[in-house]
Design a protein around this nucleic acid. Structure first.
Lengths: 204, 204, 204, 204
DNA sequence: CATGAATGAGAATTCATTCAT
DNA sequence: TATGAATGAATTCTCATTCAT
């Protein structure tokens, strides 16, 4: 009918898209991919099932984008830190702890990192996501090595280990019942671990 | 009276159980729990669906056992190393590298560690599995701190980080296409990372 | 905005629910719970298997409702009769014969009363159903005893016996082939039996 | 091999047959047809699944015989009572109460009477069984009418009602929680009900 | 002749995707 | 264009019956 789509309409559409992504994110965070059925996502976004397919061609592509958005957000923050001021040591600690704090608040991102994908398409996206996060730490490692703060080492392996280390420590701390560590202690402990791991001289 | 069960028959039965476990393991390693349907497992084991239920009461219990067996094997080996001779530093490196080498040969175990479980029962088993692996490293950390090899630190967090670090590095190395690191380099790199991470004095 | 759901659509939905109940009822009446598989019910209702689950969360709940609806209908009618005018004797006969006539028309209800349930949930509903029917007769027995029409007796046992007596007589008349009794004779015979059973003075 | 089957062997076979029937009966009594799987019956009889099929060609035929045996036993006892001394009134009460007492001891028989069959073949047997029990009461009704103890009435309907009445009262008494009637009271109450129902002059 | 492992059809239930309205 | 009811294939699990040993 209307030849030109009104601006209002376009905003509406953008809103819907955003709402779907948000709903999907929330559902995955709550109970994993298993809980995030298409119907549930659509309903939580205030839309019908059919409407969702107007914005995303399939469930897989929706979740690829969910993951992508989460990671883009994360990478943006971590990238800012990595490109900021201070020594590589300081920036590495800041990055690790920044990630850790956000993950502890809403653990969906960390969860998404290790959750088994429902689909090969999502799996591919997951690899890319991890790589992107890893790249931030690779840069920091390079900086530190260049400045002489860290000894020479494989930055590829190091970055992967860092991502794995904090992911694991955040999602499934060993000994979950005994001695419940406070959030501050946990974040700091992870930071210490990673700094020592890359050979930085850390506290004492 | 009752026909004596032939030795052949007994072997057959034991074989079937083993074949089921093997098939399940292989399918999970290949494509995750999603790919490992009961029908697929049974078929790959050369049995009918119903026959599988003679050996395992449910899909969940089958996979709990798959995981349990893998971890028991792993813990046994790592435990031997941890209780062996040499400094904590040496034993820690040996444990990490031993795990890493096996994981690179047949990556299913590492995969099982991070795969999203299909079932709460399996999830519980997974947590226990990670904790058991973690405990080995906790012991090594304690040893090293006691001997003065490692600085004082949280052994809970450290153990979790170590497990996470090598799991991640093994399963999804950052930058998987470019500069394919040799296996030796990767294993050594992970070892270095972990030793530095705990504060050991590592070569150079 | 949202398309207004047409009246036609709403009728369609209500129809579907009704059709499912009807199909379930018919299948149970024909061949018991065994014959009433979810697939068969859905198919007889002109729907797919999955569609049925939009209207009923499980097979058990569907059959609980089938039973419940039948009994609610029955209890309403019998209750009206029991609370009506006339002596307890008259009302008891009217209630028994009313039930009997309906049961002979569509024997599913009587069948449902004695069918072995496929599920504990349904079994529970069945007990409640029988109790509800029994309660109507308990009230009538009490009335009759109070008015002196019936001798003193256990109203619990009496009510159970009455329900059992007409259920049996309706569903499986002894000697089903020989001397096929007319419906009128059967209904009257059951009425006579029950009245005598409670000690009422019955014609001749 | 052996041309003539030894007597011992024949006894053995007869024993097995009997044991199977007994096991089947016990399982049905415990938890209905649902619980009585072929494997369970065979196991409880101390035999293998396959061996059972040497004695019964199918599950259905096994349960037809289980029912038949139970009823034959019942009919024999009730027949003795019915053909015994005393007035029809006395014999009817004795028969009803005798049945009731046995049913209360081991309720499997009463259960089998109303349980939904797993199979049309068993259903047919069930009808025959009920008819056979009914026939005993038909004879008693005829006796009583002939002797002038009972008024003229349909013996077919009356017999069916009696069977239904005590079956129901025994298996599912209305109001099962409140006022738990003693066994004696229940048996007597059922007897009273049935005697009054046929028009006998009963106590007071 | 006895065994019991194996079969395989069938049951209930779920869910991504489509399409008439 | 939005809706959500309908689809139907796929999943886990059961069990009467068979047959190699």
């Amino acid at each position: 009918m209307a030849y030109k789509r009104s601006t209002l309409m376009q905003e509406r559409l953008a809103d819907n898209r955003e709402r779907i992504l948000k709903a999907a994110r929330a559902l995955v965070a709550e109970g994993g991919f298993r809980q995030a059925s298409v119907t549930a996502v659509a309903h939580n976004a205030g839309l019908s099932t059919g409407a969702l397919y107007r914005y995303f061609p399939s469930k897989a592509e929706l979740f690829v984008e969910v993951l992508g958005a989460a990671v883009a957000h994360e990478v943006a923050i971590l990238g800012d830190i990595a490109r900021g001021d201070g020594s590589a040591t300081q920036r590495l600690r800041a990055a690790v702890e920044s990630f850790a704090r956000r993950a502890l608040q809403g653990p969906y991102l960390a969860y998404a990192f290790i959750a088994e994908p429902a689909d090969p398409e999502v799996e591919a996206a997951r690899l890319i996501a991890r790589a992107q996060i890893g790249d931030v730490f690779k840069k920091l490692l390079k900086d530190g090595i260049a400045s002489g703060e860290f000894p020479k080492q494989s930055v590829d392996i190091g970055a992967a280990c860092i991502v794995g280390a904090f992911t694991e420590a955040l999602v499934r701390p060993v000994a979950p019942t005994a001695k419940r560590v406070t959030e501050d202690k946990l974040v700091e402990g992870i930071g210490d671990f990673c700094l020592r791991a890359v050979g930085a001289r850390v506290g004492g």
